[in-house]
């Protein structure tokens, strides 16, 4: 138990003193997971909206695929991305393995089905009569979509929060395709894993506390936005 207590104390110390290495790793974590979340939203929201609104061919199968994707084992994603990005692999010419770019690719594959799935559910939860009403009021295509997204914003923000959560908590895939390289691909989760291997449990706990605080902070901002925009004035 003393390890956990000591870890909390050290977390406070690292944060107050502004330890440059910890700040760099935290900032890099935010950059990589932030980019991955953004791309996941850019891909996932349109996919979710399309599947919710359009009666496309094989829709049932595609929705199943999205729901399946929400539970993709990260280590499998990591393995595939790793092998694809090998020097002598199919995508080796991109020269992306062991870079933040590789980590973003893996995290997007993990996070975008989550965003798409939540978006799909949020749009489908809107009363269908609302759609007819919007159209009846003479909205064009883009106005229609905009109003629909506005109406579903609670669920959409939940989608962003869930996507961010799965990206920032990623370890297996991040380790495999990023390689935990100091100054380049070392993020909070991979550093925690490394410190455990190096026997420094106190530092591992301290970094865990920092990771939790970071995740809470970002999630809290999104939640604040979600809850305070609920009633249009």
């Amino acid at each position: 138990m003393s390890v956990i207590g000591d870890g909390m104390i050290q977390a406070g110390r690292l944060l107050i003193s502004g330890d440059p290495e910890v700040l760099r790793i935290t900032w890099r974590t935010l950059q990589i997971t932030g980019t991955a979340t953004l791309i996941s939203v850019v891909i996932g929201v349109p996919v979710g909206v399309t599947l919710a609104l359009r009666k496309v061919f094989g829709r049932w199968l595609m929705v199943s695929a999205v729901n399946f994707g929400m539970g993709l084992p990260p280590v499998v994603v990591g393995l595939f991305v790793w092998l694809l990005l090998f020097r002598y692999g199919p995508l080796g010419f991109l020269d992306l393995l062991y870079t933040p770019g590789a980590m973003i690719i893996a995290e997007v594959i993990i996070a975008f089905p989550v965003v798409a799935g939540f978006t799909l559910a949020a749009i489908q939860a809107i009363n269908p009569k609302m759609r007819f009403q919007i159209l009846a009021l003479g909205a064009n295509r883009w106005q229609f979509l905009w109003l629909l997204l506005r109406e579903a914003r609670l669920g959409l923000l939940a989608a962003v929060i869930a996507g961010f959560g799965s990206a920032i908590s990623e370890l297996g895939a991040a380790m495999m395709v990023g390689g935990n390289i100091e100054g380049l691909t070392r993020v909070l989760t991979t550093t925690i894993d490394q410190e455990v291997s190096m026997g420094d449990f106190v530092l591992a706990i301290a970094l865990s506390v920092i990771l939790l605080l970071l995740t809470f902070f970002v999630t809290a901002i999104l939640t604040w936005y979600q809850q305070h925009r609920r009633q249009p004035q």
Binding site: Y98, G179, I181, E182, L184, Q194, S197, M198, G199
Partner: peptide, 23 residues
Amino acid sequence: QDTGLMDVLIPMFQTQTGYVVKP
């Protein structure tokens, strides 16, 4: 890595030669 040896050697190598090691 777990003993910390590479954390000592790799920065030395990088400063001397300008290579970026991806261990």
